[in-house]
Design a protein around this nucleic acid. Sequence first.
DNA 1: TTTTTAATGGAACCATGGTTCCGTTAAGAT
DNA 2: ATCTTAACGGAACCATGGTTCCATTAAAAA
Lengths: 200, 200
Amino acid sequence: MTVGTVRPGGRTARVRAAVLQAAGDALVEDGFDKLDLAEIARRAGVGKTTVYRRWGTVAALVADMLDDMADQSTPRADTGSLIGDLRANAHLVLRTLTDPRQGALFRAIIVAAACDARTATALRTFYAVRIAEWAPCVEQAISRGELPAGTDATEVIRAVSAPLYYRLMISQEPLDPTAADRAAEAAAAAARAGAYAQTG
Amino acid sequence: MTVGTVRPGGRTARVRAAVLQAAGDALVEDGFDKLDLAEIARRAGVGKTTVYRRWGTVAALVADMLDDMADQSTPRADTGSLIGDLRANAHLVLRTLTDPRQGALFRAIIVAAACDARTATALRTFYAVRIAEWAPCVEQAISRGELPAGTDATEVIRAVSAPLYYRLMISQEPLDPTAADRAAEAAAAAARAGAYAQTG
DNA sequence: TTTTTAATGGAACCATGGTTCCGTTAAGAT
DNA sequence: ATCTTAACGGAACCATGGTTCCATTAAAAA
């Protein structure tokens, strides 16, 4: 059994919180590759032995941060129109990725996921929750007659995020409100045209 | 002046080629984070001092690989229709990202770019060349009357790639021909609807 | 061909993550 | 309140990237 699960009260929880907080700070300041567990322990005011024992690797620590973040999920919008809802989603993603702390965190997490299978799984789960939260916007649009029946709701939501993450990780173009609006409008237009019809 | 630029003939070029080849192999097998310059030197049959002297860091080596790859660019398609051209582009990206060697290479490069500013610049340049190569497809579609005047051509091309890279790095869903077709159709539909109208 | 010196590469060296050991602290059971 | 032991943390230790030194090799100039 993993260390820290038999006596989760008091000290153990305090240590975990302090370490995750410190890890976030270090990730934002130094980036994923320069991360050093001893430095995180120092920031957290915790013995480095503890950090190595409980997490062992940077990737595992990042995965745990993700599990921690997965608890808070932002509720979906309900503006009455597909484009309104998708815009709200795009701007939520925009705010997250442009926030100095959260943006750096997500970059680091995506990098960690590319390096470590456990983190990759944690990341998939994280987004699955968020996409499931927003998919009803698309379902409603279908029942309103805005979109063709059989439209893949999760695919539409992902289509909103994709250009924004592409900017973050690949093209490194600025993430601004224009980009968010474009992402929402493009996804809506494509969905209306039937580009996300369910396959099979 | 950087080492290896005064006597670029014969041996120096041979060493560079061997090291870049070995770095690619190692990247594909072990991934970016586990990369070790000494191991690369061993594979390349080259002294590790040489590798450290000429490149110094893994990120710099990856940036050099990108410069090397930038020389070869695949010519754009000209099928006579926007959707045909965009499909061709989407399938080209698909082939690249699903190729065992190239796919792993791109992941590693994207990761390296997130960790190092020099690599990030090299990556931007790399894609700028490729996108400029394909942008005329969109220009032609505009002059054919398929798309509204003032459509941002590069944005349309990027819109084709975005969902595919999103799958590669974020959602980790399968990259299959359906995904490529969807990416092309979605970008075309959004462009027709005017979602990529030039701003300003 | 000879000369010059940029570039290479083996070996010894060093620094810095990461591990092990073991005594201490405090959570949870009695 | 007392006891048991999970979890913590300091210090010494170790392994493995990364650097330095210097002799050797081979481009390019003369």
